[in-house]
Computed example of a mutant assay.
Amino acid sequence: MYQVAVQPYWRRVHAHLASVQDLCRDIMCRDGIGALLNSLGPGIRWNAPVLEINSAGMARVEPNGHGLLLSPSFFLQGGAAVLPSLPGRAGSSPVLVFPGHSGGHHCSLLDEVPPPAPAASRLPQESLAALLGRTRAAILHALRDGCSNGELAEELGITPGAISQHTATLRNAGLISTHRSGGRVVHTVTALGRHLLCAASDCTEVCGGT
């Protein structure tokens, strides 16, 4: 069942959830934990010091100093769900599982199975992913030859809106530049970005060597 129902789509699902995690991290760093909690979807509202979750069968959960683990779900429909602790780990932090998609976009990710990526480009170098986040590292890697938001969204399987936020972060860091070509907005990697890719992958092709 896994090989038929999950494996062909897993790369896109994984990239999408990684993008959700990166966006949550950005919101928290920029606007604070309250803004993050209020952004998790309808029926979730931070009314300090209580996180209110409008969901059927929801009971009051006391973290008791263990914090709260946020877990986006690709398949969860409707409202959020709270697990008192991680499965098999009694006494651990409660887990807030929230829908990790907007509208029907999660269905469009499964419309067609993309061809397998070359082995060398399936994942960015782990050191680069640790520095930038998995999604932004993948975007930087994909922009070596320049492409648009729509092309990036199609290749990585995440929304154009998420692509715009990530490319803005990379542009502000001086790693990519953006220009218009006809009716398209095209992103390309700057010299600094290529040096970063080169350092992470030890690849002369990225740096322009022979």
Rank of each mutant, 00 (worst) to 15 (best):
N172T: 09
L196G: 03
H106C: 05
A142V: 02
L140A: 01
A162F: 06
P114S: 06
A162M: 08
P160M: 07
E126C: 07
N149C: 11
H106L: 05
C207H: 10
G146H: 06
G103E: 04
R122E: 08
A120R: 15
R194T: 01
A162D: 04
R122K: 15
A137F: 04
V206D: 12
A119V: 10
L156C: 04
P114F: 04
T178C: 15
A153C: 05
A162Y: 06
A119T: 12
E205V: 09
H166Q: 11
L132S: 00
Q165I: 08
T190V: 02
S127E: 09
L140W: 01
G103Q: 04
H166V: 00
L196N: 02
S181E: 13
H179K: 10
A142S: 13
I163D: 00
H141L: 12
A153P: 04
P115I: 04
R134T: 03
T190E: 02
E126Y: 13
L109K: 06
H195G: 11
C147Q: 11
L143Y: 04
G174E: 05
L131V: 05
H166I: 02
A199V: 07
L128G: 00
D145P: 08
T178N: 12
A200T: 01
L123P: 04
L123W: 15
P115G: 08
P116G: 07
T178Y: 10
H166P: 06
E151D: 10
G183D: 09
P124K: 05
L156M: 07
E155Q: 13
L143S: 00
A200G: 03
T190H: 07
I158K: 04
H101Q: 06
A129G: 05
S201K: 14
A168G: 09
P116E: 10
R144V: 07
L197V: 01
E205C: 11
G100S: 01
A119K: 13
H141Y: 11
H195A: 13
P114A: 03
Q165R: 14
R171E: 11
H106R: 15
S108E: 09
T190N: 07
S108N: 12
L143R: 04
A119E: 15
D202K: 15
Q125K: 14
A168F: 10
G193R: 03
S121V: 11
D145R: 14
D111Y: 14
C203T: 07
